[in-house]
Amino acid sequence: MIELQDIRKSFGEKEILKGVSTIMEPGKVNLIIGASGSGKTVMMKCIVGLMGVDNGKILYDKQDFTAMDEKEKKVIRQEIGMLFQGSALFDSMTVEQNVMFPLEMFGKGSLKEKKSRVAECLERVQLKEAAKKFPAEISGGMKKRVGIARAIVLNPKYLFCDEPNSGLDPQTSLLIDKLITELTQEYNITTVINTHDMNTVMESGDHIVYMYQGQKQWEGSNKEIVFSKDQKLNDFIFASEFLREAKEMRQLELFKDGKWREQLKKEQDGK
């Protein structure tokens, strides 16, 4: 579980995060959504400690990460897997060596076991045939998938993905979403994803935080989101005619399920 308490971050005069608080639970896919430039990447980098926060606390399973020294942070970080927006693969290494790297550094067991673990991870992202290639020789979408394989190879307790499916075709994108959801539930990982992919939002958003101008504008699940009356959120999520229709379909579908009647009523009463 990761808990954010009133996180603030500025670059010079410009305040990017204006006091964000939320709780990210294990076994759930937690999404951070928001327009380009709304501070999603900055927020993620603050959570993992690549950027310092100006104010507020970040708790990893009740431990105050912001108050830790480098040595203690290192311990937490060895349980973190992260996919960067630009993949950040080591370009002097092949795909296989990239995925192997965290295992070599921290993994236990024989070389054979490590190799089979690497093969397993590459299999899961469907990249077995590219194992011997260098990052410069593969496409952007493939790099993303290698990045995911590298992030999950050590079975992390916390998984961070900065736009895992931007630049992927819909089919591969869906595959990645499914993979992340499966892993999250299978190993009870606390997963945090930055995205503006509507498929991801609707399919795997167990918990969604909508960021608008540095603040948490809305928070809820993918079931609640279709009933939300928040104008800014609706403008952002259901931007096209097609998506608005999809939203109504989803509402009807959920409506058949009795519980959602109350939810809808609550939303409409202006909760």
């Binding site: 980098k45 993992v48 690549l50 942070k73 290192k74 311990v75 937490i76 970080r77 060895q78 973190i80 992260m82 960067f84 630009g86 950040a88 693969l89 080591f90 370009d91 790297f101 965290p102 550094m105 921290f106």
Partner: peptide, 12 residues
């Protein structure tokens, strides 16, 4: 290219 950040995040 954030490779240093990626190493840092692994706890190196």
């Amino acid at each position: 290219s954030e490779q240093i950040d990626a190493l840092e995040i692994m706890g190196i």
